[in-house]
Design a protein around this nucleic acid. Structure first.
Lengths: 324, 324
DNA sequence: AAGAAATGCGTTAGCACTAACGTATATCTT
DNA sequence: AAGATATACGTTAGTGCTAACGCATTTCTT
C-alpha cells in the first residue's frame, strides 16, 4: 500500500482506516446477530455498566471524548431506550446517565458476542493485535506526557536554527553520496551504468583522479552532496550534485556549488563545466547565478544519455558570453 | 484510562483517538508555521507528487479511501488552487487530478516541516512509534487476507455450537474457581476473609470435608463453577456459585445447580441449604426454580456479612412450604 | 452492430465528531 | 452577602467521511 511508504507522515490516516475497519466489522456482527446496539455505544454503555450511573463529563473523561460527544450519544441512547437522564439532586448542573433495565438485559445477553469479538480479532490478526495494543498503550502514555505538536515544533525550530555546513568527503559519508544521487536520478531519469559505477566507488572514480566531493550537513542530517571530477589536467566537471528532496530551498545546493567552485580555484583549474538536463529548471537557474553559462550545443562526447544541457563556468569579466 | 481495560473491544475507539491526535498535532504545526495546507490533504497531494497526474479512482485506491472521499477532497483542493481536474482524452469517464504549479511550490517548501514531523513524532513517542507502525502494517496485511467480521462470526458460531458440559474438580481448574468467584464478589460485595481462605485452597476447605466442586465448560472456555460444602454429616451448603459475566444466559448456572443437587442426592444428604443476597435477583429466581424455598429469616450463625437470604432445598412433595 | 453489463465519477443524505457558544448552577473571593 | 469566576451541560454549525444513487462512458456479449 502506498501509505506505508510515507511512514510516520501517514500514520494518522492508517490508524483511522484500521479503526473504521474494526468499527465496521463489529457493527456488521451486531447486525448479523440481531443485537440492537451499535459499536460506537460500547464505551459509554460498558462504562455505565461497570461503574454505575455517572454524570456526562465523567463519562466523557473516562472514555476520552468531549462532553458534547457524550451528550449527543446520550440523546441517541435515550431514544433507543438504553439510558435515562436524571438531574443530580446534589448538583443541579449535572445530568446523570443511568442504564435502563432494558440496557442491562441487552448488555448481559451480549457476553458471548463480546467473547466472539475478542476471539475473532485474535483469530484474524493473531499476535499482531497484542503488539498493536501494547504499542497503542505505550503511545497513549507518551502522548499524555508530551503532546506531539510540541515535539514537532521543537524539532522544526532546532532544524532551522541548525548551522548549514559543507564538509569534505569521508568514508563514513559514502552511503550518503549514493543515497542523495539515487534520489534524483531515480525520480527524473534512469540510473545509467556510469552512474552506478561512480556511486558505488566514488573514491576511485572521483577522488583518485584528483577530484573532490563535498557534503552539506544541516545539524546531524546529511542533506546534500556534490562532486568535482578532474577529467583531464586542469579541466574539471561539476557533477553528482544532489540535495535531498526534503531539504530543498534551504540554500544547501548553493553552498555546495560555491564550495566546489572555490575548490576548483584552489586547485588552479583552467576550465570547469557541467552537463545537465533541461528538465531540471531550478538547478539550471542556480548554475547561472553561480557563473555558469549555457552553451549552444551539447558537449561533444558526453557520457550521459540524459544530458541535453552543457554549461561552462565563465563568471562575469572572465570570459565573454557565448553569442547566440 | 478506562478504555485500556476493555482490551480488544475498544481497540477501534483508541485507534481513532490516536489518529485524531496525530492529525490535530500536524494541523497545529502547519498553522503555526503558516503552511497553507491541511493534514488530511497529504495522502492525495503526496501521491500526485510522487507518481504524477492520476484519475480519482486510482488515487482513492492507492490511499485506501472511497472514490467519493477523494472526489470531495479534490473539490476542496481545486478551490485551494492546488489541483486541476481534467477529462482523460482516452477515457471520457475519468477525471484526472493534476497538481498545479502552486502545489508543486508549496510541497517542495514543506520538506523541512515533514522532516520535523517525523523527528517530532520520534522524539515524543520514541521507539513505540516504530512498534506501532510495524503492528499496524502487520494488521493491515492480515485484514486483507481475512476480514475481521468473518472471523468474529465464525468464532461466535463455534461458541454457540460448542457443547456445554459440567465437569468435576481437577487441580488444573483451581485458578478458574478463584477467578469466577472473585468476579461476582468484587462486583457486588467485598471479599470477606472466609471467601479468600476458601478460594485460595478449595481442596482443603471444600473437598476434604466431603464436598464437591463442579465446573461448566463451553468449548474450551471454563465459564462457571459451583461448590457443595458438607457443613456437618449429611448437611450440605450450596456455595461459591459463579458464572462468568460474559457467558450468562446460556444455561450454565442451571446446569451446575442441577449437577450439585444430583451430587447431594448421590451422597445421601439430609439437608441442602444456601445463603445469598437479595441483590442477586436472577440467581434467587434460579434457586427457586430448582427447588429451593426462601426461609423467613437469615440462617442463624451465618458465616457471611452479605447474606440476607436463606434458602433450603425442599422440592415439591418432599417437605411442606414453610409458613409465613 | 446493438444491447447488456461494468466502470468512473459526482452528488446527496446522513453519521460521528469537534469547536464554539449560551445558560444554568456551583464555588470562590472579599 | 454579592459579585466574579468556574463548572456542567446542551445546542449549533461545520468537517470528514461513507453509502447509495444516477449519469455518462466504456467494455463485454452475441
Amino acid at each position: 500500500m502506498y501509505l506505508e511508504s510515507l511512514g510516520k507522515l501517514a500514520l494518522g490516516s492508517r490508524l483511522k482506516a484500521l479503526s473504521d475497519h474494526l468499527y465496521g466489522a463489529v457493527d456488521q456482527v451486531y447486525q448479523a446477530r440481531g443485537a440492537r446496539i451499535e459499536s460506537r455505544w460500547l464505551p459509554v454503555l460498558r462504562y455505565l455498566w461497570d461503574v454505575g450511573p455517572r454524570p456526562v463529563t465523567e463519562v466523557a473523561e473516562a472514555i476520552g471524548q468531549t462532553h458534547s460527544a457524550v451528550s449527543q450519544l446520550a440523546d441517541k441512547l435515550v431514544r433507543a431506550g438504553m439510558v435515562k437522564r436524571r438531574r443530580d439532586p446534589a448538583d443541579g448542573r449535572r445530568s446523570v446517565l443511568t442504564l435502563t433495565d432494558k440496557a442491562h438485559r441487552a448488555l448481559s445477553e451480549l457476553g458471548p458476542l463480546w467473547w466472539a469479538v475478542r476471539q475473532g480479532v485474535t483469530d484474524a490478526l493473531g499476535e499482531h493485535v497484542e503488539r498493536l495494543l501494547d504499542a497503542v498503550a505505550a503511545c497513549e502514555r507518551a502522548l499524555r506526557e508530551r503532546p506531539v505538536a510540541d515535539a514537532i515544533l521543537a524539532a522544526h525550530a532546532a532544524l532551522l536554527a541548525a548551522p548549514l555546513e559543507v564538509v569534505p568527503y569521508a568514508p563514513a559519508l559514502r552511503t550518503h553520496f549514493r543515497r542523495l544521487n539515487l534520489q534524483w536520478l531515480e525520480r527524473h531519469f534512469r540510473v545509467e551504468d556510469i552512474d552506478r559505477a561512480v556511486l558505488d566507488d566514488p573514491e576511485r572514480h572521483i577522488l583518485q583522479s584528483g577530484g573532490a566531493i563535498f557534503f552539506a550537513r544541516l545539524g546531524k542530517e546529511v542533506v546534500g552532496t556534490c562532486a568535482l571530477l578532474q577529467e583531464s589536467p586542469g579541466v574539471f566537471e561539476l557533477t553528482k550534485m544532489g540535495v535531498d528532496e526534503g531539504f530543498r530551498g534551504l540554500g544547501a545546493g548553493r553552498r555546495l556549488l560555491d564550495e566546489a567552485i572555490a575548490e576548483f580555484h584552489r586547485r588552479g583549474g583552467r576550465m570547469l563545466f557541467l552537463e545537465s538536463s533541461s528538465t531540471l529548471k531550478p538547478a539550471l537557474r542556480m548554475y547561472e547565478q553561480a557563473g555558469f553559462r549555457l552553451q549552444p550545443s551539447v558537449r561533444p562526447g558526453s557520457h550521459y544519455e540524459r544530458a541535453d544541457v552543457y554549461m561552462i563556468y565563465e563568471p562575469a569579466g572572465r570570459a565573454p558570453r557565448a553569442p547566440g
